[in-house]
Design a protein around this nucleic acid. Structure first.
Lengths: 205, 205
DNA sequence: CTCCCGTCTGTTAGTGACTACCTGATTGGT
DNA sequence: ACCAATCAGGTAGTCACTAACAGACGGGAG
C-alpha cells in the first residue's frame, strides 16, 4: 500500500502514470502488443509520446512491474536465519502471494492477472519478465546477507533460490491460465512442494 | 556433430553463417553488444546488412543458439519412464553437459563459453536466453509424452522441469564466471543436488 | 502576493533494428 | 544448355528510443 504523497505534483504524476498504463494494457489486449505503437498509447492517454517515455522508459515497462520484489526481499531478510534456505525463500514467496489474496487487493490482483497474461503470450514481454525474476533472485540472495565467502555455499544458495523462483513462476503461469480462479498462495505452495517435497511450506512457524 | 551437406550451396551458406557469427561475437566482445550495430557486423563480415538479416533474423540470434535443446529433449524421451521426473530430466541435462566435456568438443565449448558470457553481461541477451530456457522446458515436457490429462500431475511436472532448468542455468552461469575452468557436468550435478538433495544425480543408471 | 527554482511536458531531429518489395546473379537438376 | 529455385544486394519505410532545447506550471522563500 504505497501512500500517495500529498503534494499536488506527485499526485498528478502518479495519476498520469496510471492513466497511461491503463490505456496501454487495454490497447495491448485489444489489438495485441506488437500491433500497438507507442504513439497509439500516447494518443489514447492524451499525452505526447515523450511523456510516455518519461514515465515508462521502454514499451515493455508499460506491462512489467517489480512492485513485489522489494516486499519479497524484505520478508526473506526478516526470516529466521537458522532455517533451510528453501524454507526461508519459499515462505517469503507464499507470504507475498497471500498479500494479494485479500478482498482489498482485488483490484491489484486483477491488474496483475491481465499483465501476466500479456507477459505469457508475448515473447518479448515473457523474456523480460523472466529476466526480472532473475534480478529478483539476486535481490533475494542479497537479502540473505550471507557474508560468508564460501563459494560452495553461495553456489548452493544460487541453485536453491533459482529453483524457488522457478516454482513461483510455474505457479503464476498456472494462475494466469486459470484466469485467477485458483488460489495463488496455494499454487505457490503446491509448486514448491512438487519441487522440494511436501515438507517445505510446512506448518507455519 | 551436424554433418555438412555436400551441395556447394549449402556449404557456402553454412560458411557465411559461421563467418558472420564469428565476426559478430568478436565485435560484441571488443566494443560491447549495444555499441555494435548490425551494419558494423555486416561490414566486418564483408556482406551486406540484408544478408546478415537473412541468416540471423534478429541481432540477438547472432549470439543465441538452441543447438542443444533437441539433444536434451531426445535424452529425456529416451529415459526410462518409471523413474522420478527430476532424475529423468536431471540425467538428461548432465548427459548433455558431458557431451561438451570431451577434447573433440573443445572448440564448441569455447564458443559456447564466449556466448554465455555475453548473454550474462547483456540484459537483452540474458532475457532472451532465459526465454529460450523456458522454451526448452516446454520441449522437455513434450518429450515426457505424458498423455495423461491429470492437471495436477502436469502442474507438478512443470514445477519439476522448471526447477531442473533453473539448476542448469545456475550451473552454466557459474561455469561462465569461472571462464570454463570448472567441470560443467559436475557443476550441473552439484546444482541439481543442492536443489533436490544428493540422491538425484545419484549413481549412474 | 510575488519571484524564482525545479519539475513536467512538448517539439524536433536524429539513430538503429527490422521489414517489404524488388532486381540480378549463381547454382542444381533436367 | 535451359529452367527453376535459391541467395545476395538495394531502397524505402516503420517503429522504438534518445538528445537537446524551449515553454508551462506548481511550490517554496522573501
Amino acid at each position: 500500500m504505497p501512500e500517495e504523497p500529498s503534494t499536488l505534483r506527485a499526485r498528478r504524476r502518479v495519476q498520469t502514470q496510471r492513466t497511461i498504463q491503463a490505456h496501454a494494457t487495454r490497447l495491448f489486449r485489444e489489438r495485441g502488443y506488437d500491433a500497438t505503437t507507442m504513439n497509439d498509447v500516447a494518443e489514447a492517454a492524451g499525452v505526447s509520446p515523450m511523456t510516455v517515455y518519461r514515465h515508462f522508459p521502454t514499451k515493455e515497462d508499460l506491462v512489467l512491474s517489480d512492485q513485489y520484489g522489494e516486499l519479497i526481499a524484505e520478508r526473506v531478510a526478516a526470516s529466521p536465519a537458522g532455517q533451510p534456505l528453501v524454507r526461508r525463500i519459499g515462505g517469503a514467496l507464499v507470504a507475498a502471494a497471500a498479500a494479494l489474496a485479500g478482498d482489498d487487493a482485488a483490484a491489484d490482483r486483477r491488474f496483475l492477472l491481465v499483465r501476466l497474461q500479456l507477459m505469457i503470450a508475448t515473447p518479448a514481454l515473457r523474456a523480460r519478465h523472466l529476466d526480472n525474476q532473475y534480478a529478483l533472485q539476486q535481490a533475494i540472495l542479497g537479502a540473505l546477507e550471507d557474508g560468508d565467502a564460501d563459494p560452495d555455499a553461495a553456489f548452493e544458495a544460487q541453485a536453491a533460490a533459482s529453483a524457488c523462483l522457478a516454482a513461483l513462476h510455474t505457479a503464476m503461469v498456472r494462475w494466469a491460465e486459470d484466469d485467477g480462479r485458483t488460489d495463488l498462495p496455494g499454487l505457490v505452495g503446491k509448486a514448491l512442494a512438487a519441487v522440494f517435497g511436501d515438507d517445505v511450506a510446512g506448518p507455519a512457524r
